[in-house]
Amino acid sequence: MALRWGQRTHVMGVINLTPDSFSDGGRFDRPARALAQAQRLVAQGVEILDLGAQSTRPGAEDVGAAEEQARLLPALQLIRQAIDSGQMRCPPRGDAPQASGRPLISVDTFRAPVAEAALAAGADWINDVSGGRQDPAMLSLVAQVGCPYVLMHSRGDSHSMDGLTDYGAAGVVPSVLRELQRASQLALAAGVRQEQLIWDPGLGFAKTTEQNLALLRGLAQLRSEGVPLLVGPSRKRFIGAVLEEPRAKARLWGTAAVVAQCVSAGVDVVRVHDGGPIVQVAKMADALWR
């Protein structure tokens, strides 16, 4: 499926293949369960499936490349087979009948060996929370393969990012923009083509609640650079702080409000756990703002 940037909002569905993710750890850490969730999300209108086998929540344990691949590849292979056999197709949208087709598979990893194995097994995208910082070989791999590359803004790692929220006098929006531009320059220097890049401002990664809100208010400034923009607000801690809701799964309506803000700012992809409700939110918001 070819996505058409700037025409409407695409929904990416999260499938965590980990036992320790902050929202749904352990629910989909078996290949059959992951496949069932992928089928459910696609039937609800999700067009991109994002598989992750290494938790990146604050304080998460780094499990290493071997364990990450062991978690990832069986589920990825099952989902790829189901897509290729025609068992999983995106339903047509009334506002975009051309949207029907095979869903895309994204893999959420910051390790080049895992990305390489995932691409060989049929992944379409690489979604790198480190933006190429944690494994410099990632950029040359993405350049060689030519796949779409989600370059996310972050600082530090799962153990240090909460202490790296000082963005100085410039503030969080100009600083994140500058750091995304710098990371993109490194990617281009490594041979990645401009059209492969998708930016993610990294909500929740080295940002306080107020900084996340400021980023959401400043999305149009990031989008004005002309790079497709992906935002992942789903169930995150800053939504819980605003709503005074400690339960991650109970933050759907807060997530929906953030998604509406994303659509109004021209965001191209929203990354969420709750497929069906957010597909409806995005479709209605597109009708209002697109």
Rank of each mutant, 00 (worst) to 15 (best):
G13W: 00
R57W: 06
R80N: 13
N16L: 02
I15M: 00
A32E: 15
I83V: 13
Q37I: 00
Q37V: 00
S106A: 10
Q39H: 09
G86V: 14
L72R: 10
L3S: 04
L49R: 00
R33M: 12
R57H: 12
D50P: 03
G52M: 01
A2V: 11
R102A: 12
R57C: 05
P58Q: 08
P97N: 06
L35W: 06
P31Y: 08
I15G: 00
P19R: 13
L49E: 00
R71D: 11
C90Y: 10
L73V: 15
I79W: 04
D20A: 10
P97G: 07
I83D: 01
R4D: 04
P92Y: 15
T56P: 02
G52V: 01
F28G: 00
Q44L: 07
L51V: 04
L3M: 11
G52E: 00
S23P: 02
A32Y: 06
E61V: 09
S85H: 11
Q81V: 10
C90P: 05
D84E: 15
S21Y: 04
L72D: 08
L73F: 14
L78M: 15
G6V: 04
S55D: 08
S23Q: 13
D50W: 03
G94N: 11
G26L: 09
M12Q: 10
R93Q: 13
I48Y: 01
L35H: 03
A2P: 04
G94Y: 07
L104H: 06
A82Q: 13
M12Y: 11
A66I: 07
T56F: 03
A34V: 01
I105P: 00
L78D: 15
R89S: 13
Q69V: 15
